[in-house]
Design a protein around this nucleic acid. Structure first.
Length: 577
RNA sequence: CGGAGUGUAGCGCAGCUUGGUAGCGCAUCUGGUUUGGGACCAGAGGGUCGUAGGUUCGAAUCCUAUCACUCCGACCA
């Protein structure tokens, strides 16, 4: 490609509303332009990258025997009513009406559509397993779009759906997809990690997320330093405390703690470590169907230095889902003390104690009396933990639940997510097959997503420097940039550039030839670096006189010289490396 | 949804307090000089000051409404 015929829309200044590095660089390098909140135009340079990611994804999907289809972005409400998600999905689902006043939505995902498609085409176990995928635009009306392409409202996604007659078969395909995802991210050249994940609103049982590791990641992921265990922090567990609880050595004492309402203050005031305190959170419990009046209160007790994991809490029997904290007025009214002075001793509501909290001896906690705390409290002696559960987020240094090593926490960008859905959609939508006994039963399903456009942003978050983007070879918009010096003056330079451009292009290499004769060297160099082209050669009279061509890899600290005669072979070797 | 903030040339910003000719840098165009890391000189084009009302002789500036965008929070005992 000749630069004179290609839009290189680079900018020197960073647009004011770009927060994260990938957003800034995508704008500055002229890959995308914002058109409205969460909506972007892809410019030629950016689209080349997006297409490269799509190509790799498509190749690996095909290789795993998934079949490509294309489903509509606009979907009829009937299908969503059938699955129950027209009600469940909330305002992320953008609903629209056509001229006949019929209701539709813009597809945030395609479970309903694909289930509808497949129930019409597949009727026998003999046709299974089957996996269908598409690379399609999705729309999610995000509460708060941010970070540019990373969390846009309209984005490109690869979504695949598998159908099975048995759980074993589903597991096999799931494993195959897991492998295909690893192949994809390996080929793109990203540092990533598959982690155990929650299934969220999609539903289902088994699930893994694929995270690109980057400082700016929105998710915290947890992994063992000496095994394969890795999980989203939402889902991560620490090994339950082992051994005996320390002995009760202190006496239970009530201490006046005026105006001390949070753990740090109380711990400092009492001169003890936060680990020696317990905190008590009050949430709403489930209301029995026939009961009247307000929902019951439930107390959750955690060690002072630990944070509540809402996901774990709301999955416990008796606790509302989604989790809801009790209004302060009710707490005061029914428990007799404000938040910040609560404790498990003498509470007359259901109490759920975190495993780690149940292992602390001689602890401090609120006295259920404003301005007072208890110290030297002990389980068994002073109160009984009726119900002990895992309630907390893990912290770095916790023992891994697999028994090997300790846990570490890193930031990740979720770029892929795979689920075993089971029969959630097939049952609701009556997608059945006849099994080998002639019995009708719902198909088992899996679903597998990759945020294709997000991968582009994630790749930048992981690969950049002060000068701009550093694309992994596999998804760079161009592999090589040819930068001439004084081409408008030197016949030799022009000839050499043209010859080389033709030779490389004929060899199937994507070359960006900076052929705008009047452009200044500094501008061309800065642009090729900002845009992130992995390899660069500079051709000028000085070098040609010596029979040498200047080469610099995007990550190289120094430029080097290659004898003219070896250039083609050397470049091809570098590209294959 | 709650809180904060911003809308002035393609981009980044000043001007607003104290109403009176619409400004700067980058980018763009023309001519010239330059040419191994984002050039220099001279000139030029480009604005319903987000939108709608109001106050005033006069509004980018003051008032009201509205729209858009951005940031923070939605883990608190």
């Amino acid at each position: 490609m000749r630069a004179s015929q290609f839009l290189i829309a680079t900018q020197k200044e960073t647009p004011a509303d770009a927060e994260v590095i990938s957003h800034q660089l995508m704008l500055r390098a002229g890959l995308v332009r914002k058109m409205a909140s969460g909506l972007y135009n892809w410019l030629p340079m950016g689209l080349r990258v997006l297409r490269k990611v799509e190509k790799i994804v498509r190749e690996e999907m095909d290789r795993s025997n998934a079949q490509e289809v294309l489903m509509p972005v606009v979907q009829p409400s009937e299908l969503w009513t059938e699955s129950g998600r027209w009600q469940e999905y909330g305002s992320e689902l953008l609903r629209i009406k056509d001229r006949h006043n019929r209701e539709f939505c813009l597809g945030p995902t395609h479970e309903e559509v694909v289930t509808d498609l497949v129930r019409g085409e597949i009727n026998s176990y003999k046709q299974l397993p089957a996996t269908f995928y598409q690379i399609q635009t999705k729309f999610r009306d995000e509460v708060r779009p941010r970070f540019g392409i990373m969390r846009a409202r309209e984005f490109t996604m690869k979504d695949a759906y598998s159908f099975h007659a048995s759980g074993d078969c589903l597991q096999q395909t799931y494993d195959k997809m897991h492998q295909a995802y690893c192949n994809i991210f390996d080929r793109i050249g990203l540092s990533y990690r598959p982690v155990i994940a929650d299934t969220g609103s999609i539903g289902g049982a088994v699930s893994h997320e694929f995270h690109v590791l980057a400082q700016s990641g929105e998710d915290a992921i947890v992994f063992s330093d000496s095994s394969d265990y890795a999980a989203n922090v939402e889902k991560a567990e620490a090994l339950a405390p082992t051994g005996e609880r320390p002995d009760a050595t202190a006496d239970k004492t009530e201490v006046a703690t005026p105006d001390q309402h949070n753990i740090d203050d109380v711990a400092a005031f009492l001169d003890i470590a936060p680990q020696q305190t317990l905190k008590t959170l009050i949430v709403l419990g489930e209301q029995a169907d026939d009961a009247e009046g307000p929902a019951p209160l439930i107390a959750l007790v955690l060690r002072g230095d630990h944070a509540l994991n809402e996901l774990k809490a709301e999955q416990l029997a008796g606790v509302t889902s989604p989790l809801e904290f009790a209004p302060e007025a009710r707490i005061k009214d029914e428990l007799g003390a404000g938040v910040g002075s609560l404790g498990p001793v003498g509470l007359e509501i259901d109490v759920i104690v975190d495993r780690a909290a149940a292992h602390v001896a001689n602890f401090a906690c609120g006295a259920n009396k404003d301005g007072s705390h208890l110290t030297g409290v002990n389980w068994s002696r002073d109160l009984v933990a009726q119900r002990i559960e895992d309630l907390r987020n893990v912290v770095a240094g916790d023992p891994s639940p697999c028994g090997a090593g300790t846990l570490d926490i890193a930031r990740g960008i979720e770029v892929g997510h795979i689920f075993q859905l089971g029969t959630k959609y097939s049952e609701a939508m009556n997608a059945t097959i006849l099994d080998n006994n002639g019995k009708q039963k719902p198909m088992l399903m899996g679903c597998y997503g990759i945020g294709v456009s997000r991968v582009v942003a994630a790749a930048i978050e992981q690969n950049f420097d002060d000068n701009g983007i550093i694309w992994p070879n596999a998804i760079a918009p161009f592999q090589i940039a040819i930068v001439p010096i004084n081409m408008h003056k030197s016949e030799a330079v022009r000839d050499k550039c043209e010859t080389l451009y033709t030779a490389l292009t004929n060899a199937g290499i994507e070359v960006l030839f900076m052929d705008e004769s009047k452009a200044r060297l500094g501008v061309m160099l800065a642009n090729t670096e900002l845009v992130g082209i992995p390899h660069r050669i500079v051709i000028g009279d000085k070098g040609l006189d010596k029979g040498m061509i200047e080469y610099k890899g995007r990550r190289d600290a120094e430029k080097s010289e290659i004898p003219e005669a070896d250039l083609l072979d050397t470049l091809i070797a570098k590209l294959q490396a």
